[in-house]
Design a protein around this nucleic acid. Structure first.
Lengths: 264, 264
DNA sequence: GCAAATTTGTTCGTATGTATT
DNA sequence: CAATACATACGAACAAATTTG
């Protein structure tokens, strides 16, 4: 027995889960019962349980027991532009993306509006000086009441001084900011760049999404920079950072012609 | 003291890491030293260390000690088509994506070629019957000798019977399969759909990428379906699944006109 | 190359605290 | 309030990996 005992116990339990003997939502035997079944100490059983819990196969609930996790049906978000319907995958309300909503009702809290100085990354993305004033608009988003994404958009302050006053109002812009800026300033988004990365959630993100306290669920960060046409080429005018829990979100991007029946 | 001791110790150590007192690569005090410093038992110290290790802030090396992790500079992969240079972001050799390579040398092992029956997902993606014969071509990819991605492409068998014999050869197709299929069969990729998700690595993936044994590093799965023009609209002819470790890979997608200086 | 010292990994036992039913 | 179940914390011993002498 080259492998440690807790590992072997974990594999045995995993096999029960994989085989369907223990179905999602099912309660595992208590630590004391497992202690007897595998003839190991309670600490060893706990090590086995932790091995499975850190891989998101089971979860422990103090006072209740240990349960096989129930996989959430993933939300699928369309990131791409449909060439026919326009740029930016449904930037109507959701600035970044549109969900495949079949009987699901997306919602958003009114935005928190603030003024922020550009850090190095934002300054580079928006082609402004580091420390330049930006308008930030933060919105938590929900699907069927479940926290879905945290979205923050940043705009150079000169858009406000040029007349886009509503950027500073802490109220939703129902037609979408892209449409508002077009109407108000004639600013047209001619393209965008998405930058995707995966990292561990901050404490605030873990709290909002109700992620487990350990670091087993990452978040996907999608940072979209929108461009308008300028005299010397494209000029960035908005950066949107959207945060999604990685365990229940997937993304689809289409390029050029694609078939309408597009899901997995 | 509402918070447990191991948590407080973990926070104290995290603060030392965040403040730069403990720099990346630095060795933490040994468990015995921490035991004295915090006046706790070794098991409690170990719980604190585990808390930090599960969040990828530190790593333990048996026989050596505990060290602050050194962040790898992320590889950035371009997923999008540049409208001018053609479809599919440099599908020359790499089927899916091109890396921003500044002095980096990408490489790939010769492909493993196999025949596989389509499972439900592949059958749907490729619009073939479940169980239909597919050619699979698997290639591990490296950057500067470091495992970078695992890439598997699936093609309907009828491409072979129509004349694309080299799909069955266990040899690289240097000009790229897209170019080969165009030359050989006149098959043109007119678009594609990328499907992105994050999940825990399989055992084989963890081994190939040398990921830590615990489940703290996820992988990003990018599933690209390529389409050609058919009499009744686009027809899928290839599915490529690429696996990347989430801790050292980022992705960029551009849409429409975008500025040339595009990185973060 | 080997033996000793160092350091983390595994396993046991025990006691007490906290959350839920 | 009592019972149940997981969480925290202590102590101890031995094993395995690595470095050092």
């Amino acid at each position: 027995m080259a492998e440690p005992m807790y590992w072997q116990i974990a594999q045995a339990l995993r096999q029960e889960i994989d085989s369907g003997e223990l179905r999602p939502g099912a309660k595992l035997p208590t630590e004391l019962e497992l202690r007897e079944r595998y003839n190991a100490s309670r600490n060893t059983i706990r090590d086995a349980v932790k091995w499975l819990a850190s891989r998101a196969l089971i979860e422990t609930r103090p006072g209740q027991g240990t349960f096989v996790v129930e996989r959430l049906a993933p939300f699928i978000t369309i990131l791409s532009a449909d060439a026919e319907t326009g740029l930016g995958g449904g930037e109507g309300n959701a600035a970044l993306s549109e969900i495949i909503a079949i009987g699901l009702t997306p919602a958003a809290d009114p935005p928190d509006v603030g003024i922020k100085r550009a850090d190095r990354v934002l300054a580079e993305q928006l082609s402004v000086d580091e420390g330049a004033q930006l308008v930030s608009r933060y919105q938590p988003r929900y699907i069927d009441g479940i926290p879905w994404s945290m979205q923050t958009s940043f705009y150079p302050m000169n858009l406000v001084t040029k007349g886009a006053d509503r950027l500073l109002e802490a109220a939703d812009i129902p037609e979408g900011v892209i449409a508002y800026l077009k109407e108000q300033l004639g600013l047209v988004q001619v393209g965008y760049r998405d930058w995707i990365l995966v990292r561990l959630p901050t404490e605030a993100e873990a709290m909002f999404f109700r992620l487990p306290d350990d670091g087993r669920v990452s978040v996907v960060v999608i940072c979209r920079t929108g461009y308008s046409d300028g005299p010397d080429g494209p000029v960035p005018f908005r950066v949107t950072m959207s945060i999604f829990p990685a365990d229940r979100n997937q993304f689809v991007i289409t390029s050029a012609h694609h078939p309408p029946e597009a899901d997995g």
